[in-house]
């Protein structure tokens, strides 16, 4: 399932890039992220607790940074599994310099397996909601940083 979107972050591109390049800052904005442990260059073990309504699960898995082209493109790959199934996702962020602010074009591809496939109708919407929470949090951090 492919989803994509555009966001505006209210800070210049260099600052946005710096934030994206800091795993801990990133971790703080990833919805439901409970643990992020580096296990290699650009590779982390992660524990996420994601709950939408009654459908809650703890997903253990890996997060890998697949692309880093400062200050233009940033790619991640996440895979995790829980008792309800597994999720594999890849995402790419492209940053566009807009002076005092930065345009982010993002796209992602989400694959699920196991019982989670039964929720396929909901997955794009939920993924978009989580992405939007992520960007709102980043924007907050950027604005806090500027203040």
């Amino acid at each position: 399932m492919r989803i994509e979107g555009n966001e505006t972050l209210h800070a210049p591109r260099d600052r946005v890039w710096a934030l994206l390049d800091d795993p801990q800052a990133l971790a703080g904005c990833t919805p439901g992220l409970e643990e992020l442990r580096p296990v290699g260059p650009d590779e982390f073990e992660a524990v996420l607790s994601i709950g939408i309504a009654a459908v809650r699960g703890t997903y253990k898995g890996k997060l890998r940074i697949t692309e880093r082209t400062p200050p233009l493109r940033y790619g991640v790959q996440v895979e995790g599994s829980s008792a309800a199934g597994f999720v594999r996702a890849t995402g790419v962020l492209e940053l566009e310099d807009q002076g005092v602010q930065t345009g982010v074009r993002w796209s992602g591809d989400v694959q699920v397996g196991g019982a989670l496939t039964l929720g396929s109708r909901m997955i794009p919407g939920i993924a978009r909601m989580l992405a939007s929470q992520f960007f709102q949090c980043l924007d907050r951090k950027l604005q806090e940083g500027a203040a």
Binding site: M1, R88, Q111, V112, G113, T117, L118, S120, R121
Partner: peptide
């Protein structure tokens, strides 16, 4: 089926 061979309509909901 999706590209990874997962059945996406595997319940009477879909």
């Amino acid at each position: 089926y999706d590209g990874s061979g997962q059945l996406l309509s595997g319940s009477f909901m879909d």
